[in-house]
Simulated assay, not measured.
Amino acid sequence: MGQSTPIILAFIGGVFLALHGGFNAQLSEQLKSPILTSLVAYIISALIAFLAVTVNTRHFPSFHQLKDIPYYLWFSGALFSVAGIGLYYYTIPKLGISTMISIGLFGQILFSVIAGHFGWFGLPTEPIAYKKIFGVLAMTLGIVLIKNT
């Protein structure tokens, strides 16, 4: 498959996240609650995911496999997701979508560079190199330019 397909899919995923943030920020303004918007979004997302799982999954994990999953993995991703997405819904109307997404992406990149360098979460290590440092600095400049235009 090479690298082009995952790169294109990652790009599309980024576009979808920006669309998602824009629509749900509007919903948050209408509902007057980013946390209520998160609840609505996650309920609808759960229903869509349930439908996708029932259509696409041929083999479900056994009870033994489910029991062996560390307990914190059942809730930690969801906790950070709700908090992060709720913050998106809250800050997009205050900062604008391009500023919020670029600052949010900067947080993701900075954290991922550090986490990748140390191999946190059992993921492969990706040592920090000068090119990565330059990339983070370039992104910082880009955010400054986006924010101040």
Results as ranks from 00 to 15, higher is better:
H59W: 04
G107H: 10
G13N: 12
G116K: 00
G86L: 03
S45K: 09
N24S: 00
N24F: 00
S33M: 02
F75A: 04
N56A: 09
K132V: 08
Q65D: 10
G142F: 10
H59A: 06
F106A: 13
L105C: 03
V113N: 03
S102P: 02
I85D: 06
G86Y: 08
P61W: 01
A18F: 01
F16Q: 12
G84W: 12
Y130E: 11
L39S: 08
F80K: 14
S112G: 03
F111P: 06
Y89W: 04
H20K: 09
I44Y: 11
L47D: 03
V15T: 08
I8G: 01
I101Y: 14
F111G: 12
L79C: 05
T57D: 02
F134G: 14
T5W: 12
I133T: 13
F75W: 12
A46T: 12
L123P: 03
T54V: 12
H59Y: 11
I69Y: 05
F106S: 13
L145Y: 05
L73D: 06
I143L: 13
A46H: 05
S98E: 10
L66S: 05
M139R: 06
L73P: 03
Y89K: 07
K131Q: 15
E126K: 14
G122A: 08
T140E: 04
F63G: 09
F121K: 06
I35T: 14
T149G: 12
T57Q: 11
W120E: 07
T140C: 15
L145G: 03
G77V: 13
V53D: 08
Q30T: 08
F50K: 05
L39C: 07
L19E: 04
V136C: 09
I35N: 10
V53C: 11
G116P: 02
L79K: 07
I97A: 11
L145K: 00
L66V: 07
I133D: 09
Y90Q: 10
L51N: 01
S4I: 14
I12Q: 02
S33I: 00
F121H: 07
A78F: 14
G116C: 02
K67Q: 15
L137G: 01
F121D: 05
I109C: 09
A18N: 00
L123S: 07
L137P: 06
T99H: 14
G84I: 10
A115Q: 02
Y89F: 14
T5C: 09
L137W: 10
P93L: 10
F11D: 00
F106M: 15
A10C: 08
S33N: 02
K32L: 06
Q108R: 08
W120A: 08
F63K: 15
L137E: 01
T91Q: 08
F111E: 00
